[in-house]
């Protein structure tokens, strides 16, 4: 009788591999992409395609040069590509996502050791880098429903986002319902709170993410903006406008939940979510920019290792019971 294969237990595995989880994230983001294309025009698809292809290619090249295994199969570069595009305005020149992808995949993710090792969210780091280098490109928004063609010249008038109005202590002119469904100016994938929440629920049901980060993040922003609404505006309307404007929803559901750059324990995730929410509001109220989500998450990224350690669960049997 031939010798059999011997391997260590457990001998069965859950079917959700990294690839499956990432496919779920992509699936949850597709409605956002479609909505983005509907509101801002087909150019959104071009930008997203450029961004995805750049991320995948840069990651593959980087690994090829360093003779590492090419992990494209796990689809995480595709997720990064989509998220990078989602954080750009629809008027962005097409070379910007290419540079952003290089920064995200090679500088942040690649040089810090590949999936599972980088300490900063590569997409947000890239966004911050682009923002610092080409601020006007990064903040030229087209008006909703003035659709840009896939490749044509951009002649849309730039439109202010609701965040600017909020920053000045006024309620935006759009009504809250438009803000909720995403009929407003903003980055490609961040405008529709409704579709982002739907995607978030899907990810929760599929157990891709846990509730702590998004709930803590959103609740903190809600609480603080409600409590500290400027004089003369309705607290409730101000809170909702703050929640549905800019990147809070996309940040809370898709960016802050990035595995690599968020804590692993339930308690750590709660604290992390609260921190992201509080910093977002702080930057929006007191910072130099109208938006604070990306920087809030990037700052919290720095505490992940510490949060993991500080919230290490008490091991089973680690204390004495009354009876023992």
């Amino acid at each position: 009788m031939g010798l059999l294969k011997v391997s260590a237990s457990p001998h069965i595995r859950h079917e959700d591999t990294t690839r499956v989880l990432m496919s779920d994230v992509i699936l949850a983001m597709i409605p956002l992409l479609i909505w983005g294309a509907y509101v801002f025009g087909l150019r959104v698809l071009t930008i997203t395609a450029v961004s995805i292809v750049s991320c995948v290619v840069f990651e593959a090249l980087f690994n090829l040069i360093l003779k590492k295994k090419i992990p494209v199969g796990d689809l995480s570069a595709v997720v990064s590509g989509m998220l990078l595009a989602f954080n750009l305005p629809a008027t962005i020149p097409l070379w910007i996502p290419v540079i952003g992808a290089f920064f995200a995949m090679v500088v942040v993710k690649g040089l810090f050791g590949g999936l599972g090792k980088n300490f900063m969210n590569p997409v947000l780091a890239a966004r911050a880098f682009l923002f610092g280098s080409w601020p006007s490109h990064m903040t030229t928004y087209s008006a909703p429903l003035e659709r840009l063609s896939a490749f044509g010249k951009i002649d849309a008038v730039s439109s202010a986002t609701t965040l600017t109005e909020l920053k000045n202590g006024a309620l935006p002119s759009e009504d809250i319902f438009d803000l909720f469904i995403g009929n407003m100016a903003g980055c490609i994938g961040e405008v529709s709170a409704m579709l982002i929440l739907a995607g978030g629920i899907y990810l929760l049901v599929r157990k891709v993410i846990t509730w702590q980060i998004p709930v803590a993040f959103i609740a903190t922003v809600a609480l603080l903006t409600f409590a500290f609404a400027p004089d003369g505006v309705s607290n409730l309307s101000f809170m909702m406008a703050e929640l549905f404007s800019g990147g809070v929803m996309l940040g809370a559901v898709f960016m802050a939940t990035d595995y690599v750059t968020s804590p692993v324990t339930a308690k750590g995730r709660l604290i992390y979510g609260i921190g992201c929410g509080a910093l977002t509001v702080f930057i929006r109220f007191f910072g130099g920019y109208p938006e604070g989500v990306s920087f809030a998450i990037l700052i919290m990224n720095l505490f992940v290792w510490y949060l993991d350690r500080a919230t290490k669960p008490r091991k089973f049997g680690g204390i004495r019971n009354a009876k023992a």
Binding site: P71, D74, L115, G116, V260, P263, V264
Partner: peptide
């Protein structure tokens, strides 16, 4: 399948009955 990388998803932490990391 051959082993890949840890993606820091925390699923192992949530499932450990001894509450380890």
């Amino acid at each position: 399948q051959p082993s890949e990388n840890c993606i820091h998803c925390g699923k192992c932490v949530g499932s450990c009955p001894m509450h380890l990391m």
